[in-house]
Simulated scan of single mutants.
Amino acid sequence: MTSSFVIGCKFRERVNELMTTDTSFPLELKEELEKILGKDEPSILSFRIARKLQKHLQKSGYPVYLHQLLEDGSIYLPPVEKPPRNPQLVARLERIKAKLANEEYMRITRNVNAQELNRLGTMADFGRQVRSVKAAVVTVFNFLVTVVATFACSYMGSQYLFTETTARVISAVIAASVVGLAELYVLVRTMEGELGEP
């Protein structure tokens, strides 16, 4: 709480003039004012001394009022000294901040699943899909190898029966087609079994 004024040049001049001209100026008040006026700027005038000065001015009948003397001054506001922070309180606040930050992080990431590849499924679903695609690729590759191998074996083996190339090719195509149809039949039956159909 403030209890003093910072005085300006106008106060200095007027009070010096009053102290020199007024013979009835109280000695105690004069000494206190001389101490204040003798200091370098900023000089601080307490409310107690200001009241004494005002009473003297009223008693003496001077046409000068205190507020006129203090026109170029201001109220002195002492610097606020912050008390040192309690280390236990600081540690507790840090723990609370860390806890709140962790709760905020958990709230933000509560719907994030590390196993999810995207919104369509998890990594386990992706693995099943990859195995399914892999099985399909292996089945198609196996079908193609079987048909090509049947064609090659039939073509090479038919040289003992047919001398003409055209007959050998036709017999190899017929053998490869029969084997291909048999493979497709087995494949379809296997697919039906995997899908749970009779």
Rank of each mutant, 00 (worst) to 15 (best):
V148P: 01
F126D: 07
Y62R: 14
N16Y: 11
L144D: 00
T23C: 03
K99P: 03
T150A: 03
S177P: 07
E164I: 13
F141G: 00
N111S: 11
A182I: 10
T166C: 10
N86V: 05
R92L: 12
P26W: 05
E41R: 11
A136I: 03
I108M: 11
A152Q: 09
Y105Q: 04
E192T: 08
M1E: 06
L29I: 07
F25M: 01
A182C: 09
I96A: 08
F162I: 03
F151G: 00
Q58F: 14
G193L: 03
E13A: 12
T190D: 05
R168A: 01
E194M: 09
E31R: 15
M1P: 05
R14Q: 10
D40S: 13
Y160S: 11
V145H: 02
T139W: 00
D125V: 07
E32V: 06
Q129F: 14
G61S: 08
S158V: 08
M19H: 05
E183C: 02
Y76C: 04
H67T: 14
L161F: 12
V112P: 10
E94M: 02
K52W: 15
R95W: 02
Q58E: 14
Y155C: 02
E197D: 08
G180H: 01
E104V: 12
Y62H: 14
P198C: 00
S46H: 01
A114I: 14
L195H: 10
P78T: 04
T2V: 14
I7Y: 04
N86C: 03
L89T: 06
K10V: 11
E34D: 06
A182W: 09
L57Y: 01
R189W: 04
M1I: 05
P198H: 05
F141Q: 01
F162Y: 07
L184S: 06
L53N: 04
L77S: 15
V138D: 01
Q54K: 08
E104N: 09
I49M: 02
L70D: 00
V186R: 09
K59P: 06
T122R: 02
S3L: 14
I49W: 00
E41S: 12
S3H: 14
L117K: 08
P42W: 09
Q58M: 07
E17C: 14
S60C: 13
V145D: 06
E164T: 10
E71Y: 09
V145L: 03
L66A: 05
Y105E: 08
L29K: 05
P83S: 15
V130C: 01
